[in-house]
């Protein structure tokens, strides 16, 4: 049995990393907003989904205009990523302004309901527009970056099979790494990043330091939503077909990844996302084998979540939860 698991391991790693990278960036959006407002922004999964639709719509439009054929595909993708992240970034800022800020001093549950409302609103809005324009709310983008590559794991040791991946997987992983390193740098090394951490730790006192707290909160929503929207585009390119409901399950899983990493902790969210992606792919590949055929690959989520629950029982603050002891 071990031999068979080893055989598929390289492919599990590649697929798990790709999926985990997506979870990780969405998880960042949850964890940043939670860190600063103690709000679970349930609309974040829908921002990811809207990003995917904006991206695919742009790609279809550009194909129709003949632009996609006229410029290098990677340039087109970068353009789409930049435009989409700016749009979803402002969308996030708008959602905070209209749906959360007026409720800032209400009980947290009220804001949570508002977030769920925004979530439904976005799903229906995207579905309406897509159906209106295309007659169907399931959308398939132009095929891009589909060239297959093999990593020759079998040449390292005969117990491994080769792993296959598409160019889009490579693009996805590289983009996510750039986003994560960029965000980590911003939060830990720049003045506004420091202001963000200060507001997350003590909003009232941050305002005594001349920091405009509302501006920092808007900035947080902009960054989280811009990253989420860009990830939506990458998701659409990687997996081809999207519908208005992809944000729901993916959002829940990314939120779980954020909790796993220790909610409010940015590096934790990154690690939690990657870990969840790997677990899920491992389960998909091996569950049938491990359970002697009782459970198939479709139980991968049960497996992944069972592991998460076990981790959280022993480490309720998450893997990278706040470790600093605070003296009062």
């Amino acid at each position: 049995m071990l031999a068979e698991i080893l055989q598929t391991l390289p492919q599990v790693l590649v697929d798990g990393l790709a999926l985990g990278a997506i979870y990780a960036v969405i998880a960042l959006g949850y964890t940043m907003v939670y860190g600063i407002l103690e709000l679970i922004n349930f609309a974040h999964g829908e921002i990811f989904m809207t990003g995917a639709f904006i991206g695919v719509a742009m790609l279809i439009l550009m194909t129709g205009l003949g632009w996609l054929a006229a410029m290098p595909a990677i340039l087109a993708l970068i353009l789409v990523l930049v435009v989409t992240s700016i749009l979803t970034g402002f969308m996030g800022v708008g959602i905070e302004r209209m749906a959360y800020r007026p409720l800032r001093n209400s009980p947290k549950l009220i804001t949570l309901i508002s977030a769920i409302g925004v979530s439904f609103l976005l799903q229906d809005l995207v579905r309406f527009i897509t159906e209106y324009k295309r007659g169907n709310y399931i959308l398939t983008g132009p095929s891009m970056f589909n060239e297959q590559f093999a990593i020759k794991f079998s040449s390292i040791s005969s117990s491994f099979s080769d792993a296959f991946f598409k160019t889009s997987t490579l693009i996805l992983i590289i983009s996510v790494v750039i986003m994560m390193v960029g965000l980590d740098f911003f939060v830990n090394k720049t003045k506004w990043g420091m202001a963000m951490r200060a507001v997350a730790q003590d909003r009232e006192t941050a305002s005594l330091m001349s920091i405009n707290v509302n501006k920092v909160i808007s900035l947080t929503f902009f960054i989280g939503s811009a990253l989420g929207g860009a990830t939506g585009v990458l998701f659409a390119v990687q997996y081809g077909t999207i519908d208005p409901y992809i944000g729901f399950i993916l959002g829940l899983k990314a939120f779980t990844a954020a909790v796993l990493g220790g909610i409010g902790n940015i590096r934790g969210a990154m690690a939690g996302g990657i870990m969840l992606g790997l677990l899920e792919m491992f389960a998909a590949a091996n569950l049938q084998l491990l359970t002697g055929g009782i459970f198939g690959a479709e139980y991968k989520d049960v497996f992944a979540f069972a592991i998460l629950i076990i981790v959280l029982i022993f480490k309720p603050e998450g893997l990278f939860g706040k470790a600093v002891t605070e003296k009062v």
Binding site: R197, E204, S210, I211
Partner: peptide, 21 residues
């Protein structure tokens, strides 16, 4: 403020820098 309210997870240097934001 009362109770000092320093930023617990910022370093001493960062806390001081916040003062001159």
């Amino acid at each position: 403020p009362e109770g000092r309210r320093i930023f617990p997870r910022l370093t001493v240097k960062e806390n001081l820098e916040m003062g001159a934001f």
